[in-house]
Structure formats: structure tokens, C-alpha cells
Amino acid sequence: MMRTALVTGAGRGLGALAARRLAAAAWDVVAVDLDADGLARTALRSPNMHVRTCDVTDPEAIADVVAMAGPVQRVVHAAMISPAAPALEQPLAEVERVLGTDVLGTVHVVRATLPGMLERGRGELILCPDHPEPGAASAAAASAAVAAYTDALWAEYGGQGVTFRCCRTPPGVPARLVLDAIDRSLARPAGETHVELSGGTLRERLSRAARRPPAATVAPR
């Protein structure tokens, strides 16, 4: 039986690769993004992938996509934005856009898909906010909110057959390593909601370490 996956942010990056891997594994993939050209590239020569141009900030549009998709077994929600801007100078409209996309977008996607999963007693809800980075304060706030939301969902709906995962993806880590970590996490106990990104080659780990801010800026007070 063909399983259906909904992948948001599928026009590029992590979402695009997630959609392609699921399509390769013979899932029926509903790929969602605002970027129609990006979606077309993702779905090239992939007959079991269906593209929907859709804004995750529009709850009705998301509900329509899910209604058309049929029972969704897995959600990979990667439609996140994280524009860099000094915290005190970022225009309020942009802060609202970040929170609207990353936080409310997540809420809309979850509300559209989780009820069906609970009804069927199975499903995987994988939320992929960007890892908090210095210089993108609103996205960092959104990332923390999505992480907390994942834990709250597990606290409220855990143990009913639905797996919840939050994978905060640092910039510069190849999407394939992030998706490998997510795949491995799905074999772990359901209550381990946060995906550990241990992986990468030594070189990648070193280059990540080199980009880390000085310890003083992140030390607890």
C-alpha cells in the first residue's frame, strides 16, 4: 500500500531533498511550497510526487491540500524563514512575517494533519525549524517556539501512535545528514522528540565548530 507524505518547504533545501527521498522510497508525496518553479524542479520526472503551490500561513489553503491528499502518514514541515537582522532594528512587519510563517505556519500544518493521524492511531509529524543563529533573533524565537510546541504536542497527544519530532537544523549542515539523523531518530523511543544531529564528517564538524560564536556570548549568567 502506498503511504502518503506531506512535505512543506519542498521547493528547495531540506524540504526538496526530503520530498525526493520519500518519492524514491515509493511514497505518494504531496510537495508544498510558495515557489512554483522550485516545486517543479523538485518533482522533475517523479510521477508519484504531486505539487501544490500553497502558503503555510493560510490555514484554509493547508486544510484544502490535506483534504485532497487523503490520509497523511508522515509530515515533514520545513517551510521556515529566518532572515538575518539586528534584533532591535528588524522591521516589526518582518518579525511578524517570521513568527507568522514559522510558528503559526507550524500550528496550521499540525492542526490540518494531526487529527487524522490520531484518528488512525499512526503517523509521523516532523517539524524542522532552523537552528537559532546569532543575528536572526526573530527566527531564533520562532525556532524555540516550535521546539516547545513539539514537546507540548507530545505531552498532550503522546502514546497514541503518533511520533513527534523536532529537528532544529543548523546552517551549513548538508540536508542529507539532517535527513539521515531524522530517519535514525524515528527508530528511537517515541518520547525522544528532539533529533540529535551528531553526524557529519570530521571536517564538517570542525567547520561547524569554527563558526561557533565565542563561548562568552552564549554562557549562562
Binding site: A23, A24, A25, L44, R176
Partner: peptide, 12 residues
Amino acid sequence: VRYADGDLGPYH
């Protein structure tokens, strides 16, 4: 082999 990105589409 898992082909994720290529001219023949995604497949195993």
C-alpha cells in the same frame, strides 16, 4: 542505490 537528485527522477 538511492537516487535522490538526478535526471531520471528519484528512485531506488
